[in-house]
């Protein structure tokens, strides 16, 4: 499943995308993200996967600065932590 969390508003598209077919539920993104954006839980079909916390999805652009700005400041980001290449950002 390609899960898109976030929104578009007047200023742009703010989505964090988790490809749950690639995700193995290891949880490395959960510990890597300084803003604690992710959690690992079973999806509705019983597969343990990473997801963007419900409390974060409605304000992603305020919680996460966007991938480029984050990677300039943080050594291990959600993208580099994920060995499966399951996470992407639209901003």
């Amino acid at each position: 499943m390609e899960a898109n969390y976030g929104y578009s508003d007047g200023s742009g598209d703010y989505f964090i995308i988790v490809d749950t077919d690639k995700c193995n539920g290891c949880g490395d993104c959960v510990t890597a993200c300084p803003e604690r954006v992710f959690e690992v839980a079973p999806d509705d079909y019983g597969k343990k996967v990473a997801l963007v916390k419900e409390s974060v999805a409605s304000k992603v652009s305020y919680v996460c600065p966007g991938y480029k700005p984050c990677s300039a400041n943080v050594e291990t980001t959600c993208h580099t932590a994920c060995k499966m290449g399951a996470i992407s950002h639209t901003w």
């Binding site: 499943m1 898109n4 976030g6 929104y7 508003d9 999805a57």
Partner: peptide, 12 residues
Amino acid sequence: GQVTKFIMNDKC
């Protein structure tokens, strides 16, 4: 009947 892709507009 399983979801393969989804997107929501979660803000306003």
